[in-house]
């Protein structure tokens, strides 16, 4: 049995493409299984979880985003879900990622930067309501100590400009 994704030992100097791909699969699985405290640990201290509002949106704060979360905001979201006063989750939401095999775009041991591109479908349901989002996730990973960590997870939604319903979990 493998441990949680974040705890899988990665050879200090050289993650293989397969290590990177497995990391992306495991990351989605932690969300879907609502192991959000473990998921949170996958993020580097200066990480960004970003879902732009438009196609080709430049980095930075000159434009609104759907998500633009540092670790503090991720923590707030995760802790909120644990509270009984979170009425919008008394009837809880569940989600399911269906990932295409991640494509390793960059594996730069020297720069300690690993980039993957993963087309996905994401379903979020809450009792009788379900919606499906499609898009591409880009993971920018780095090695910290023995572990891979997320520096950036960027989610490019196919219908980022649509009038969207409440998205309460994490695509």
């Amino acid at each position: 049995m493998r441990g949680p994704a974040g705890e899988r030992p990665v050879p200090v100097n050289a993650p293989t493409p397969e290590d990177l791909v497995q990391f992306v699969y495991d990351e989605a699985r932690l969300i879907d299984e609502k192991r959000l405290d473990e998921w949170y640990e996958l993020f580097a201290p200066d990480a960004l979880y970003w879902m732009p509002l438009t196609r080709g949106q430049p980095e930075g704060e000159g434009h609104t985003s759907l998500f633009h979360e540092d670790k503090l905001l991720l923590k707030v979201r995760i802790e909120r879900l644990k509270r009984p006063q979170s009425y919008s989750q008394n009837q809880p939401s569940f989600c399911q990622h269906v990932l295409q095999r991640p494509q390793v775009l960059s594996l730069d041991i020297e720069a300690n930067e690993f980039i993957l591109r993963t087309p996905f479908l994401y379903a979020e349901s809450r009792l009788d309501d379900q919606f499906v989002l499609a898009g591409v996730a880009r993971h920018h990973l780095t090695r910290i100590g023995e572990h891979l960590r997320i520096k950036l997870k960027k989610i490019e939604l196919l219908n980022c400009d649509a009038a969207l319903p409440s998205i309460q979990l994490f695509p």
Binding site: L66, R77, Y87, S166
Partner: peptide, 14 residues
């Protein structure tokens, strides 16, 4: 105000 806003989720739920 975003569809992803936890404050928005509170309001819309009500």
């Amino acid at each position: 105000n975003a569809p992803t806003s936890i404050v928005g989720h509170d309001d819309l739920h009500c």
